[in-house]
Design a protein around this nucleic acid. Structure first.
Lengths: 194, 194
DNA sequence: AATAAATGTTAAACTAGATTAACATCATTT
DNA sequence: AAATGATGTTAATCTAGTTTAACATTTATT
C-alpha cells in the first residue's frame, strides 16, 4: 500500500503536515483492477475520483448508434472519474475501463467532504488541479476546431509519446475523433513524407 | 455599483457573513465596457476573472490561417476570462470581446489570493464552479464527437435560446465549428421539415 | 431618403474524412 | 503448429461540410 506517488503529486500544490498526511491516508483506499475491468459504468453513479498509481485507463462514451468515443486516457500520476456524475451524484455519461492491470487511489464521495473539513488546504489543491483540467479541456476544443486530423495526431504523438506506445492504434483514432482506417492512412502518408 | 447578482450567485454555493461580504466588495471593482471593446487580448496576460452583471461577451481564438473560432458566449450571471492565462500568468490564447455594452465584476489576480486567505470558503466556491465548467467543457467535446452539425445546432438552440436571439448567426456558426453558409443551409432545411 | 456596412442566402464545385469490404499481420490459446 | 481473435492496412465509393462567388436583406449613418 504505497501512497507515495500521490503524496508527491499533492506536494507540488500544497504542504501537508504529518498529521494531515496520516488523516488523509486513513480515509483513502488503494484498489487493484485487472485489465478489462470497469471503474465506472455509463448509467451508474460515480462514487470515486481516482488517482492512477500504476496502469492505464480509458474514459469513453457509447453513443446512440453504439459507437465508442474515447475522451481521455489516464496513466500514472493522472486522475480519472466521471466528474459530472461524481459532483452531482447522478448517472454517469462515461465508462472508465482499465487497459492494463491497474492500481488506483480511490477518493470516495462519502469521505471527500470530511477531507475538505479536516484539511481545508485540500479544497485549494483540488481547485488548482480542476482549473488545469478545465484549461486542458478547452485547449482540446480549440485543437479540434483549428487542426486537421493529421495535425491533431501529430500533436497527440508529440504530447503523449508514452501513451501512444501503450495503446492500440484504433483507440487513438477514437480519441482523435476519426476512424481507424483514416488514422492508418495518415500514418502511411507520414511515412512517405519523411 | 450593484454587486447583488454576484452575491446572489455566490449564495447558491456558500454562505457569507456580512463582514465577509464587505471584505469581498472592498476588493472587487465593477467595470463598464462598450460594445466592441476587448476585456482580454490574445498574447496579453489575463489579469482578471470576470462575472457578467450585464451584457454579453464572446471568447474566441484566431488561428494561424486568420480564422476566428468562438469558444464561448457569456451573458448575465456567467463567468468569462482566459483561465489558462490567468492561472499561469502567461500570454493568453484567447480574446474576450464585448458584443454589447457590458458591466463586469473584475476579480483581479493581485487580490484573489488575499480573498482565498481571508475567506477560505471562496476556495470552495471557485472549486465548485470550475468543476461545473470542466464538466460542461467535456460534454461539449462529447457533442462534437457524436452529433451532426444539425443536431449540435438544435442542442444549442434548445439550451441557450436567450443567447441565440442576442447574437448574429455567423457567430453561432463559428461557435458550432461550422461555416455560416452551412448553418444557413441547416436552418432552411429545418424550415422545410416542419 | 440614400448610401454604406453588416448580416444572411443560395447554389455549384470541391475535399477531408467516413464507410464498406477484403485482406494482412500479430498475439494467444489449444 | 494450427487455429482463433484482435489489431492494422489498402482501396473504392460515398457524404457531410467547405469554398467560392454572386446576390438579398437588414441595420446604421449621413
Amino acid at each position: 500500500m504505497n501512497f507515495d506517488p500521490l503524496l508527491k503529486y499533492i506536494n507540488n500544490y500544497i504542504d501537508l503536515t504529518d498529521d494531515e498526511i496520516a488523516f488523509l491516508k486513513s480515509k483513502l483506499i488503494i484498489r487493484k483492477y485487472l485489465k478489462g475491468q470497469y471503474i465506472v459504468q455509463q448509467g451508474d453513479i460515480c462514487k470515486y475520483e481516482c488517482f492512477v498509481l500504476k496502469g492505464c485507463t480509458k474514459t469513453f462514451y457509447v453513443d446512440k448508434e453504439g459507437q465508442e468515443h474515447i475522451l481521455m486516457f489516464s496513466i500514472e500520476d493522472w486522475w480519472t472519474s466521471d466528474m459530472g456524475s461524481f459532483i452531482t451524484q447522478t448517472p454517469a455519461d462515461f465508462n472508465v475501463q482499465c487497459l492494463e492491470n491497474s492500481e488506483l487511489v480511490m477518493f470516495s464521495y462519502d469521505i471527500i467532504e470530511d477531507l475538505y473539513r479536516e484539511i481545508p488546504k485540500l479544497e485549494r489543491f483540488f481547485r488548482q488541479i480542476i482549473e488545469r483540467a478545465f484549461v486542458a479541456s478547452q485547449k482540446r476544443i480549440v485543437r479540434s476546431f483549428s487542426l486537421s486530423a493529421k495535425e491533431q495526431y501529430l500533436y497527440f504523438r508529440d504530447q503523449y509519446p508514452l501513451i501512444e506506445q501503450r495503446i492500440p492504434q484504433y483507440m487513438i483514432a477514437s480519441y482523435l475523433g476519426i476512424t481507424k482506417e483514416f488514422l492508418s492512412k495518415i500514418k502511411s502518408q507520414l511515412i512517405l513524407e519523411q
